[in-house]
């Protein structure tokens, strides 16, 4: 056979070799079937670690208790004992190093999440103590009268 007739074959084989080489270099070594099967588990194994190292920002009530045990104890006696401290004060992050102080949010919107009256039968929301924000001391911070750590009205 004439040599020139084979030229397209060599070109094609070179292209295939280059694609295979590029694939070998570019695809991570831990890529493959790492889960229960090809359909659901075909991935880069180290991608799981990428998610495991996400920093935890909400530390939970017990970690607040390590320093603020007075507030913790007070809260546990109140009807707000079900609330996490960080629900209102925001995520602790690396507190007390960073941030040194957590923001104290005194906005009415925070309290209205639960205590804006919604008259719903058969819903626990309807049973929560609630107000009409437009009627009930509009413009005043709730904490002017109510202690959020100990909200029971008899302690006012």
């Amino acid at each position: 056979m004439k040599k020139h007739a084979l030229k397209p074959l060599w070109v094609a084989l070179t292209v295939i070799a280059l694609v295979l080489l590029a694939r070998y270099v570019m695809v991570p070594k831990d890529f493959g079937v790492n889960g229960r099967n090809f359909t659901y588990g075909f991935h880069r194994q180290s991608a799981i670690n990428d998610w495991l190292v996400v920093p935890v920002k909400y530390k939970g009530k017990e970690s607040c208790n390590e320093c603020h045990d007075d507030k913790y104890a007070e809260n546990l006696e109140s009807r707000h004992r079900l609330l996490e401290c960080e629900n209102c004060h925001g995520p602790a992050l690396e507190h007390p190093e960073n941030p040194e102080r957590l923001v104290i949010d005194l906005s009415r919107d925070l309290c209205l999440r639960c205590h804006s009256k919604l008259d719903y039968p058969n819903s626990p929301r309807g049973a929560l103590p609630g107000i009409d924000p437009a009627e009930h001391n509009a413009g005043l911070a709730c904490s002017e009268c109510h202690n959020p750590h100990r909200p029971d009205l008899e302690d006012m």
């Binding site: 889960g35 588990g41 991608a47 998610w51």
Partner: peptide, 11 residues
């Protein structure tokens, strides 16, 4: 993908 404990994650 789905992890072995059943959570679907994105790479």
């Amino acid at each position: 993908f789905q992890t072995r404990d059943g959570v679907v994650l994105v790479d």
